[in-house]
Nucleic acid binder design. Sequence first.
DNA 1: CGGGCTATACTCGCAGCGGAGTATTCCGCT
DNA 2: AGCGGAATACTCCGCTGCGAGTATAGCCCG
Lengths: 211, 211
Amino acid sequence: MPVRRKVGNLLGLAVLTVLVDRPMHPYEMATVIRARGKDQDMEIKWGSLYRVVQNLERHGFVEAAGSERAGARPERTVYRLTPTGRAELEDWARDLVAVPEPEHPRFEAGLSVLAILDPDEAAGLLRARAALVERRLAAQRAELAHDRGETPRLFLLEREYDLAVGQAELDWTRALLAELLDGTFPDLPLWRSLHPPPSPPHPGGRDGRHR
Amino acid sequence: MPVRRKVGNLLGLAVLTVLVDRPMHPYEMATVIRARGKDQDMEIKWGSLYRVVQNLERHGFVEAAGSERAGARPERTVYRLTPTGRAELEDWARDLVAVPEPEHPRFEAGLSVLAILDPDEAAGLLRARAALVERRLAAQRAELAHDRGETPRLFLLEREYDLAVGQAELDWTRALLAELLDGTFPDLPLWRSLHPPPSPPHPGGRDGRHR
DNA sequence: CGGGCTATACTCGCAGCGGAGTATTCCGCT
DNA sequence: AGCGGAATACTCCGCTGCGAGTATAGCCCG
C-alpha cells in the first residue's frame, strides 16, 4: 500500500501546497486553492479545513506564524510550512505519482450489480450515462482550451489526464451499449432469464426464478 | 449529485446484493462476497461489516429473520432483504450506472502537485508508475481470460471496464513521459527554473525563487 | 494426543470527517 | 437609511469507518 499518512485527507495536500508560496490563514488558503482550480482535482469538503490544518500542526507539518486581525473580527492565525511539512509534501506527491493503487469508481460498482436490473433498462441507463459523460467531456475540453491561453500546461496536466480517462470510459460504454442494442452481447438470453416479464398474458404459473 | 443514500458505504450494496439470493448471517455474507470476487470491485473493509448491516437494518432495508446457533458459539442473526431494501438496491444500481460523477483518483492529485518535484525526478516516478501499471494490467488480463471460461461475461463487465480505463491511463502516462524524455514538453524551462540545482559550483549567489 | 495454525465469528474504541449551523461585515439597491 | 443577500470566517457535534483485538472450533502434523 501507499505509506500510511499521519494526515490522510487530500485537503491537507492542497494546504501544504499553497503554503509553499507564503504563510496564510486558513480561510485564505481556501480562497487560493479555489482560485487555482485545485479544488476540482480532489473532493474537498470545506467543513474539514480547520480540522485538517489543526492536524497538520499537531504533526509538525505547519506551525503558527503569529496572528493578525483585520478591523474587527476574531484574530486569524497565520500558518507557515515547516521543513518537515515541505518534506511530507514532496514525499506525498512522490507516492501519489509513482504508486498506482487500485481505485474503485462508482461506475465499476454499478457494473458489478448490473445483472440485477433488466437488460433493456440497463441499456437505457448506459445510454443516458454516455450522453452525460459526452457533454461533460465537451465542456472540460472547451474550458481546458481556454485556460491554455492563461496557464502553462505544466499546471493543467491533471485536467488532460482526466480528459483522456473520461474518453476511454465513454468509448467503452458506447461499445458495450452497441453490443446490447444490436444483440451481439452473448449473455442476453441468460440475462433475460433473470428478469421474467412482469406478467405474461396468463398461462400456467411458470416462474423462472434464478439460482 | 447522486441521491444521498441513507447507507452510503458500498459494502452495503454488496450486502443487499447477496441477500437477493437468500437470507444470511453477516459472516456468511462476507464469505459469499469474497467468493464472487465482488470484494475486488469496491474498497471493502471488513471491520465495517456489522456496522453496515446494523445501519441497513435501522433503515428497514434488511430485517432479522431469526437466529441460529451451530454447536456452541454465540447465536448468529440471519438477515433477509425487505421489499424496501430490494427497491433501494435497484435504485442505487441505477444511480451508479446512469449518473457519472467526477471522481478523484490519487494519480490526479499527484499530477496536480507535480510541479513541486524536480522534472527529472518526476520523469523517473512516471516511468516507475508506468511499469507497475503495465504489470498489473497484464495480470488482470490473464486472470480475466481465465475466468471467462467459468463465469459468463455478464458478471465480468466491471473487470473489462477496469482494463479499458487502466490501459488509457497507461497510454497517457507513457505519452507524457515520452515528451519529458525527448524534451518536447513545452514547459520544461519554466519547470526547471522552479528547481535550481542544489548548489551550482559557486558563482554569485543567484537564486531563482519562483512567483 | 497435544500443540500450534488457520478459519470462523464477531466486538470495541476512537479518530476523523463533513453537514449544518452561526455570527459578522460588506455591498448593492431602492 | 434600511433591507436583503452574499461573502467572510469560522465552530460544533454526531455518525461513520475501520484498525486492532478477542475467543472458540476444527484440523493437520508429527
